[in-house]
């Protein structure tokens, strides 16, 4: 299957950049679709960090609208995209999987991750791979993907924060621009901006922390981090953006 899949589209939000992320959500039984660029997707809270979309379903229960499916950047296996409940890479629907018992492609796993986790808990000894790490070509492709995604996210964040710095609300700290889009570094955690100020971590660091929190299934911290990121990067008023009621109180900073 080809990567990415499709003709480049323009972001529905900023109408400037290429949409690389497709979001589907069910609102009152109707399916709404959005095509977003990485920057807007992050700003609206659809993507955690670096396009690590496999993380999304785990955050879903915390505050994302019900029925939200994921989103993807590039990699053949890292992200998966489902429109409705169809993997857009191979076209498999979740119902087809249920009746046939077979996934269509590697990306189906990310696309249906939230549906698969309960299944894994039943049929397997856990829902997390603890075995051997990839080597050779698999590892090389993963490194390239990670570097590219980190670079894209940095670029998007930089574009995002520069033109429209939003110092409107109270004493909200300013969004620090991401690091310059330099050569991709393998260990993305090391790619922190060099101008680390004395005080609080910036959005990229918080996103990295968020990613790690999701990885270790520490959803409470993840929710806190997500809220901090949102507070740092959202313009004061997000026009037309749906209210996301926090299901659990007391998690905001």
């Amino acid at each position: 299957m080809q990567r990415g899949g499709g003709i480049p589209m323009i972001c529905d939000q900023c109408h400037k950049r290429d949409a690389t992320i497709h979001v589907t959500q069910a609102v009152n039984g109707e399916t709404q679709e959005m095509n977003l660029c990485a920057g807007c997707a992050m700003r609206l809270g659809f993507v955690s960090a670096g396009g690590d979309l496999s993380a999304l379903p785990f955050l879903e229960g915390l505050s994302f609208p019900a029925g939200l499916f994921k989103v993807s950047l590039g990699s053949p296996v890292k992200g998966g995209t489902a429109v409705g409940e169809r993997c857009i890479h191979c076209g498999l629907t979740f119902d087809e999987f249920r009746s046939g018992g077979r996934m269509g492609c590697g990306r189906c796993y990310a696309a249906f991750a939230h549906r698969l986790l309960p299944l894994m808990k039943r049929i397997q000894s856990g829902d997390r791979h603890t075995g051997l790490r990839p080597t050779g070509a698999t590892a090389r492709v993963m490194e390239q993907d990670a570097a590219r995604e980190a670079r894209e996210a940095r670029e998007a964040a930089a574009r995002e924060s520069r033109p429209e710095a939003p110092p409107t609300v109270k004493s909200r700290p300013r969004v620090r621009p991401g690091p310059p889009a330099g050569p991709p570094q393998a260990g993305s955690a090391d790619a922190a901006p060099e101008s680390a100020g004395p005080a609080e971590p910036g959005v990229p660091e918080l996103r990295e922390e968020l990613r790690k929190a999701v990885d270790r299934e520490d959803y409470e911290s993840a929710a806190r981090l997500r809220d901090r990121i949102r507070a740092l990067s959202e313009p004061a008023d997000t026009p037309g953006e749906k209210d996301r009621e926090e299901k659990k109180g007391g998690q905001a900073p």
Binding site: S54, P76, V77, K78, C105, G106, Y109, A110, A113, L116, M120, D127, R128, H129, P134, A137, T138, R140, V141, M142, D215
Partner: peptide, 8 residues
């Protein structure tokens, strides 16, 4: 390059 997912 084999199909691999960080979680699965």
């Amino acid at each position: 390059a084999f199909a691999y997912h960080e979680r699965f």
